[in-house]
C-alpha cells in the first residue's frame, strides 16, 4: 500500500474556484484505478482502501497543499476532475462519476456531488428556454452546502430554468421553510425563510462570506423551533 500524493495532471486543465476537493486515503492497487467505463469503475470499487472526499471552502484555504488541484469545471473534461498520483507516478482520475461508488463519509456529500453535477447541464436541459447553470452559481452553492449544519434538514439541491442553483429546506411535514438561490453574479445570492404563506426573511447575501451564511442558517432554526 502506498500513500497518495495528489497533484494536478497537465493533460486535463484544472482551475481552483472557491474551494478544493481533496481525497484522503491510500491506494492499494493504483493500476486498477481508471474509470473510463463501467467495467473500470467496478474494478475501482474492488480497491479496498477508503477515500474521504472533503470540500474546503475558499475561506479555509489549504496552506501547504499547493499540489492539490481540482475543479468542478475542467475545461476539457465533461465532469469534475480530480487527479491523484501515487508515489510510483501513476495518475488516478477521480471524477464525480467515479466517486459515487465510494462510501460517503458525511450526509451532505451526496448533495455536494449533485451540485457539482449541475455543471454538466447545457442550455435546453429542461426544454425550450432553460439555461445551463452559471459556473459561479455552482461554486457558491458548493461553498454554502459545504457549511451546512448537520442539525438542519439536508437541503434539496436543484437548478431552475434560469440557470440559478438553489438549496431548499423542506421540513418534516413536507413544506418549504425557505432556501438559497445562487445566480452566480458577484457571489450574490438571495435567501428566503418562510412559514406557510408568510415571509419571515427575504434578503440578499454574499455567498462567499461565511458569517453571513451562518446568520441565515440560524433563521431556519427559528422556524423549525
Amino acid at each position: 500500500m502506498t500513500d497518495l500524493a495528489i497533484s494536478s495532471d497537465v493533460s486535463i486543465p484544472t482551475r481552483v474556484f472557491g474551494g478544493v476537493v481533496i481525497v484522503i486515503g491510500a491506494l492499494s492497487n493504483s493500476s486498477a484505478a481508471y474509470f473510463d467505463n463501467e467495467e473500470e469503475t467496478s474494478r475501482y470499487s474492488a480497491v479496498p482502501s477508503k477515500f474521504q472526499e472533503v470540500f474546503i471552502p475558499a475561506s479555509d484555504h489549504l496552506e501547504g497543499f499547493s499540489s492539490v488541484q481540482s475543479s468542478p469545471f475542467p475545461e476539457t473534461s465533461k465532469s469534475s476532475a480530480l487527479i491523484a498520483t501515487d508515489d510510483e507516478g501513476t495518475s488516478v482520475n477521480l471524477t464525480p462519476a467515479s466517486l459515487h461508488t465510494l462510501e460517503s463519509q458525511r450526509p451532505i456529500d451526496p448533495v455536494l456531488l449533485e451540485i457539482r453535477g449541475f455543471g454538466d447541464l447545457v442550455d435546453g436541459w429542461d426544454g425550450e428556454g432553460s439555461l445551463s447553470p452559471d459556473r459561479d452559481a455552482v461554486k457558491d452553492a458548493l461553498s454554502v452546502a459545504s457549511m451546512w449544519p448537520g442539525t438542519l434538514p439536508l437541503p434539496i439541491a436543484d437548478v431552475d430554468v434560469s440557470g440559478s442553483v438553489v438549496l431548499d429546506v423542506i421540513d418534516k411535514n413536507g413544506f418549504s421553510i425557505g432556501g438559497f438561490e445562487f445566480s452566480g453574479t458577484d457571489h450574490s445570492a438571495v435567501i428566503s425563510v418562510v412559514s406557510g404563506s408568510k415571509v419571515l426573511v427575504s434578503s440578499e447575501l454574499n455567498a462567499s462570506n461565511p458569517s453571513e451564511i451562518r446568520k441565515f442558517f440560524n433563521s431556519f432554526y427559528e422556524v423549525l423551533a
Binding site: D168, I170, N173, G174, F175, S176, I177, G178, G179, E181, S183, V190, I191, S192, V194, G196, S197, V199, S202, S203, E204
Partner: peptide
C-alpha cells in the same frame, strides 16, 4: 425583486400542499 421572487416560489410550493 429577486428576493421576493424567491420567497413567492416557496409560498406557492406550500400553498399547493408541499411535497404531498
Amino acid at each position: 425583486d429577486p428576493k421576493d421572487e424567491n420567497s413567492l416560489k416557496h409560498i406557492l410550493f406550500n400553498q399547493i400542499g408541499g411535497m404531498s
